[in-house]
């Protein structure tokens, strides 16, 4: 069953055709990777999912709702969470506060003036946040200030912040970019665990290593067009992919 469908999406920046008739279907419960060389249009496409960019033509439908023309917070409220290239967290707040904020957002909606309630009595939310921190291996640091974490830990925290909302779809934009090898492997393991729980994920990546160990299906984007959409094992040998992505060299 498809949860996200992109149909005939075009996007031009001046004379540049960033996206040229892109079609894409993401099935529920799968990990779908979008790969491609630099400038292929990966980030442009992702920005069309989350309300940052409006395609010139075409549709982006999530779970029966169009994602076009609605605000980022509304997109999140219908079940799409996003992990950024550079981890976006609340750097001045404690880890547990960082995870409680999305939990409140999920329960109370886009705005609630609950100025008289006290966080101390919100035990259900706090427990949920602690379980998530446990899951990503940060429970011991729950009281620390988030800004002082390492890059890899920040990414784990960001994943916990997304997962506490039980998203129907998790978008990851180069989740291991700029990370040391050890951090990268840890993050991949964590993403595998998340995938095993049945969370639908769309991963944008150019690190092949990350993609092949994680994805159920891969779409290869080159010059704004999806040139191949297939299982990972078939992608490696595909001559079109080698041509576009690797400039003809063998993997």
């Amino acid at each position: 069953m498809s949860i996200l469908s992109v149909k005939n999406v075009n996007k031009n920046f001046g004379g540049l055709k960033a996206l040229n008739n892109v079609n894409l279907t993401v099935d529920a419960g799968t990990v779908h990777a979008i790969i491609g060389p630099n400038g292929a249009g990966k980030s442009t496409l992702l920005n069309c999912f989350i309300g940052r960019l409006e395609p010139d033509t075409g549709t982006v439908t999530f779970d029966g709702t169009s994602l076009l023309g609605i605000e980022p917070h509304e997109i999140n409220q219908i079940g799409v969470s996003r992990v950024f290239q550079t981890p976006e967290i609340f750097g001045e707040l404690s880890l547990v506060d960082n995870v409680m904020i999305p939990a409140f957002a999920k329960r109370d909606g886009i705005f609630t003036l609950n100025a008289w309630r006290q966080i101390k009595t919100e035990t259900a939310i706090r427990d949920k946040a602690m379980v998530m921190l446990e899951d990503v291996g940060l429970a011991a640091k729950a009281g620390d200030i988030a800004g002082q974490l390492s890059r890899g830990d920040k990414r784990r925290l960001e994943l916990a912040m997304c997962l506490v909302q039980d998203p129907k779809l998790l978008l990851l934009d180069e989740p291991t970019a700029g990370m040391a090898r050890a951090d990268t492997n840890n993050t991949i393991d964590l993403m595998k665990t998340i995938a095993q729980r049945g969370v639908t994920m769309v991963v944008i990546e150019h690190d092949m290593h990350v993609v092949f160990s994680l994805a159920d299906k891969i779409s290869v984007l080159a010059q704004g067009t999806v040139i191949v959409e297939d299982m990972p094992e078939n992608i490696k040998g595909n001559p079109k992919v080698q041509e576009a992505y690797l400039g003809g060299a063998h993997l």
């Binding site: 409220q77 976006e88 001045e92 999305p102 999920k106 886009i110």
Partner: peptide
């Protein structure tokens, strides 16, 4: 104060 971008992608206005 901390991060308005993250806040809106967390479903908060």
């Amino acid at each position: 104060k901390s991060n308005q971008n993250r806040m809106s992608y967390t479903g908060l206005n």
